[in-house]
Nucleic acid binder design. Structure first.
Lengths: 333, 333
DNA sequence: CTGAAAGCGCTAACAC
DNA sequence: GTGTTAGCGCTTTCAG
């Protein structure tokens, strides 16, 4: 209901030029004589003119806005990715519309359609298993998408991740070398591509390579209390080393172990497959696969800017280096 | 650069009505005969028509978008507030443009101006000390603002908080009753209104009321490592009970104490003045002032929707109930 | 280098 | 109930 005080038209009149010229000045178009430009800029300053981005968006068909689709707002994994995204977005003068899809009020498709209706220039997707119709909607509207910190079944969607298989194998190996032979894998959604085609595959291969018969995969373990409740089951199953995808889950397992008098790492080793601040504040501190979350977000956003400018990408799928940080939840012998 | 496949005009032609009628149907205007409405809706469905929100925004001067201004993306305090905001925003069909102002690339004023240029219908502000020119810009453009989880010098800006003075007093009292007489207050920015006019005031009043002479206020303590490094100073100063505004800072102090062999709570009691997930996963667990962050965000957003609809607010400043949760970092005698 | 003019896709009086 | 008609504020050919 806001009425705009001063428009491009006012500036044009005051500077005795046409709207087109003002537009050129505002957009840094070089085809303006310095003298004219100075005059226009003076008027812009004097009148406190601010361009209306909505009108610009309608006329130019570019909104300089990107959509962020994130599973949960209160998960530091996504927050740290978002920080990298945000910094690069700022650098390239994009605003970010953030959409959490944890809310059951609206289906994911509707959220995505809403973003598309807002004419976002691109989307960063951080959730799992993008629905087919979403992919179609993105293609139909010619809206580029980049995955950050996740993988997907649709092979043509660019992504920025780490090498999950390699990281997990390294983590399993660490525990194996500590003498742990009853190794377990704890995941959230086992059908997520990251798990299905990477973590679980790597885990099974590891077992096979080391001639371990008993498989211990626990899925549907999403948060702290899920982890806390799982711990007794792990013990019951004779697990002596576990790799956990989320660090809040790891902490749940850890605290539950402490409360039950189970010694970490002597009786149970824990490795977190993705570390946030949470993993580093608990005691004993958690051995983690440290993903470069900030950089992953930044690289993803940079890729998206290229796509939005119509450029080609050299590599569709980028894997950034991770680090296995040994702390107190493993023996590290 | 996207070309819209189907516009309101296509629907109108196909349904043999005018654009105005289609617009009415899209916007749920009741002044349409059921028969006509059905026909239009059939065409909309058949053509997969989706309204262009940018065009709607330009024509109606409402973008159904609100701006969120947050100090840091990777702080669960703001994330939990945001979740409440997001849920209510979704309910009222608003999108959220999130802007972190931790980045030094752009000044806060520019960030706010950018939001205003995008014609946001309102703003939720979660940072401290809103600059005067920002307040003016909001007023000039007639953009409502609501503060969530923070207070400000400008008394006319609505806010949703808890009663910080009361909460802190209660926390100090808890420690005092445990026999702690050398009480300290640890804050981030001492000039933030929440501290300056609330926490510090309450702290000083408490000292005075209990005839305690020595004041221990530590400011500029923002994160985990600041807290970690502060601990030895606390001990040196003879502090035996401390109230800390941020929980990551509390955890820093706690871990540092543990590492230095200082017994918590026997030798040092710690109370966190705002709890997130972090506070509850560490051991010993932290006694906290539990703020209803989700609700605070939700209420703030609800207030904003009213303001955006031109309604009056019954109360400008809302204080929600908090809870002092006693855990292991205080003796609780 | 600058201006005129035609939209971008939709809403909102105002008629009928 | 429904259609007509101006815009909303800006970009972008196209002339000159």
């Amino acid at each position: 209901m806001r009425k705009q005080e001063v428009t491009i038209y006012d500036v044009a009149r005051e500077a005795k030029v046409s709207m087109a010229t003002v537009s050129r000045v505002v957009n840094g178009n070089s085809n303006v004589r310095k003298e004219t430009r100075d005059r226009v800029e003076e008027v812009i300053k004097r009148l406190h003119y601010q361009p209306n981005a909505v009108a610009q968006g309608l006329a130019s068909k570019r909104t300089t806005t990107v959509g962020l689709i994130v599973p949960e707002l209160t998960n530091l994994y996504f927050a740290e990715l978002s920080r990298g995204i945000d910094d690069i977005a700022l650098l390239y003068k994009y605003n970010i519309i953030i959409s959490s899809i944890e809310n059951r009020l609206m289906k994911q498709d509707q959220v995505i359609q809403g973003l598309l209706n807002k004419q976002v220039d691109g989307v960063i997707y951080m959730s799992n298993n993008m629905p087919d119709n979403a992919v179609e909607a993105f293609e139909r509207t010619n809206t580029p998408v980049v995955l950050a910190g996740t993988k997907d079944d649709h092979p043509n969607i660019p992504s920025v991740t780490i090498d999950y298989k390699k990281a997990d194998t390294e983590a399993l190996n660490l525990m194996y070398n500590d003498g742990k032979k009853n190794l377990a894998l704890v995941v959230g959604n086992k059908d997520a591509v990251v798990n299905k085609d990477n973590r679980i595959v790597a885990y099974r291969k590891f077992l096979k390579d080391h001639d371990i018969k008993e498989e211990h995969i626990y899925d549907g373990i999403y948060d702290y209390s899920d982890g806390y409740n799982l711990c007794s089951q792990l013990v019951k199953d004779g697990v002596d080393g576990v790799i956990v995808t989320r660090d809040s889950t790891s902490v749940g397992i850890l605290n539950s172990a402490i409360d039950a008098g189970i010694k970490v790492p002597e009786e149970l080793e824990i490795v977190t497959a993705s570390a946030t601040q949470i993993a580093s504040v608990v005691r004993p501190s958690l051995t983690t696969v440290k993903q470069p979350l900030y950089d992953m977000g930044a690289v993803a956003m940079r890729m998206l800017t290229k796509l939005m400018d119509g450029e080609e990408l050299d590599d569709i799928h980028i894997e950034l280096p991770y680090e296995l940080v040994k702390k107190q939840s493993t023996l590290n012998q």
